[in-house]
């Protein structure tokens, strides 16, 4: 289930499938759910992840050495969706691994194992639109991205094609760097809200409890991903989950 418009802030976090390895993914996801994370992206690792910063690029390359793949992602999704019905699982992937699997077959399989949403950063709205009837039939929500330089008429088009929520890229650049949450950011959110009643998930640069508190009341979802993967790499999945729980505890309701 995706949140409703103006509901209190929820945290979305991340698993790169195969990082640090496939067994650890299951444990890490259980830890995230227990720590209060409501939405989890399962990222299919890719050899050439152009929208990601170094944390996720390196995690992708490590994951590929440890069995990460589209098939491994679907297998993991089948397990975790069944085990954690309270959480919402979103398939995040660059287009090519999915294309190679076969898009129609992939979407059917993903929906059947319990995936609720899709984030595909290199698949622009023009290419997604013809698939909307398929997504609606399967109950899969394409979550499209809006960026600070997206022109208004394009925001409108993206909003129309999006389901579940809209992914708001907080600033220019790739994942894994700090963002400022000032007046410009608020007017950016207002610009998007003109065109949609969907909840907004803000990502890129959400790296601390301060960031979450800054976003609380402004947006429905905060994507806390690269920093979590850094915790996972440096401290292991158990400590990463503890840090997540402590951080979510610091967010004022």
């Amino acid at each position: 289930m995706f949140p409703k418009q103006y509901e209190a802030l929820q945290v979305m976090s991340h698993a790169v499938v195969g990082f640090p390895n496939l067994d650890e993914n299951e444990k890490a996801i259980a830890g995230l759910v227990k720590s209060g994370v409501k939405l989890i992206e399962l990222q299919v690792p890719f050899s050439d992840p152009v929208a990601d910063g170094h944390t996720l690029v390196n995690a992708c390359h490590d994951a590929l050495k440890h069995g990460g793949s589209v098939r491994a992602t679907l297998a993991l999704a089948e397990k975790v969706c069944a085990k954690h019905p309270e959480a919402t699982f979103i398939l995040m992937s660059y287009l090519n691994p999915l294309y190679r699997y076969g898009l129609q077959a992939l979407f059917e399989k993903a929906a059947s194992v319990g995936i609720e949403g899709l984030i595909i950063p290199d698949w622009p709205v023009e290419e997604i639109e013809p698939w909307l009837p398929t997504f609606d039939e399967l109950g899969l929500s394409p979550i499209l991205m809006v960026t600070p330089n997206t022109p208004l008429e394009r925001i409108e088009r993206i909003a129309k094609a999006s389901r579940g929520m809209i992914y708001v890229v907080s600033r220019m650049g790739v994942t894994g760097h700090q963002t400022q949450w000032g007046e410009d950011f608020q007017s950016y959110l207002d610009r998007i809200r003109q065109y949609t009643d969907l909840p907004l998930a803000v990502g890129f640069g959400v790296r601390s409890a301060d960031d979450l508190n800054a976003l609380a009341g402004k947006t429905e979802v905060a994507a806390f991903c690269s920093k979590y993967i850094e915790w996972q790499r440096n401290d292991g999945s158990d400590v990463a989950a503890e840090k997540m729980e402590a951080m979510i505890g610091e967010v004022s309701a």
Partner: peptide, 21 residues
């Protein structure tokens, strides 16, 4: 090469069955 979509465009890429370049 097999048809794939990466690096911003669709063409024939050397890739494996999982779509990794």
């Amino acid at each position: 090469g097999e048809t794939g979509i990466a690096q911003g465009y669709k063409t024939l890429f050397l890739q494996n069955d999982d779509g990794q370049l």
